[in-house]
């Protein structure tokens, strides 16, 4: 097995990880905000329901959630996941994986948002109020930038965790990079398994640099 072939085949697997990563981010970042508004809602039942939801999602393993999304719709409701996405042929299991990842990460991210919003001192809102700003203006012109600055470090952390978590999709037979590598080792070639680490390291390295850059950009002010 040549180095080039392995590299190419692992890259094919890693494309699946990248796909899960991008799609999860695109959906979980906005969905997280919706959940945040739920957990901070003044309507009691809404707040109670969303907080319970977040507790369940954060309190159970992502691997278990993958199994649930994989089996429960079919067993209980006889629902089959479709086999194409955005007009492209895909493994139906990819759907299950994405649903589990998006829900899981939206729950975590919603808590990061909530922490950020709640960390803004009341005085900032009140300053906006006495200056005659509307609620919307206070949120968008006063609070939002400060929240963004505060959540960038924990968000970066979460996003780097997501890169590595994508390999969990193999437990429901999504053929991501570790799945491919295990196929090699089943045939007696063990080194590709360790080689996968390089892919993750490079990807996470790039993300670390990116977040470092954003943090630096936002460092023009303090507080």
């Amino acid at each position: 097995m040549s180095f080039q072939t392995v590299t190419r085949m692992l890259l094919g697997g890693f494309a699946e990880n990248g796909f899960i990563f991008i799609m999860t981010l695109l959906m979980a970042l906005p969905l997280g905000l919706v959940i945040t508004f739920g957990t901070m809602s003044s309507i009691r039942p809404v707040k109670w329901l969303t907080r319970t939801f977040v507790w369940i999602i954060r309190g159970t393993p992502l691997m278990l959630q993958l199994f649930v999304v994989m089996y429960v719709p079919g067993l209980l409701f006889d629902i089959q996941m479709p086999d194409h996405m955005l007009g492209v042929q895909v493994n139906p299991r990819m759907y299950s994986a994405l649903i589990a990842f998006v829900i899981n990460y939206a729950a975590y991210i919603s808590e990061i948002y909530r922490g950020g919003i709640e960390s803004i001192p009341k005085g900032q809102y009140e300053a906006g109020q006495v200056l005659g700003m509307t609620k919307g203006q206070i949120f968008f012109k006063v609070v939002l930038m400060q929240v963004v600055k505060r959540i960038i470090p924990p968000l970066g952390n979460e996003i780097i965790t997501l890169v590595k978590d994508t390999s969990l999709a193999r437990v429901i037979a999504v053929q991501e990079i570790l799945w491919i590598a295990e196929e090699f080792s089943a045939r007696g070639v063990i080194w590709p398994l360790f080689y996968t680490g390089v892919y993750f390291l490079v990807f996470c390295g790039v993300l670390t640099l990116l977040f470092g850059y954003i943090e630096k950009k936002l460092n023009y002010y303090r507080g």
Binding site: Q124, A127, Q146, K149
Partner: peptide
């Protein structure tokens, strides 16, 4: 208008 004890300027 109100000037607060703790200023409450917008840091950004």
């Amino acid at each position: 208008g109100l000037v607060f004890q703790s200023f409450n300027l917008f840091p950004q």
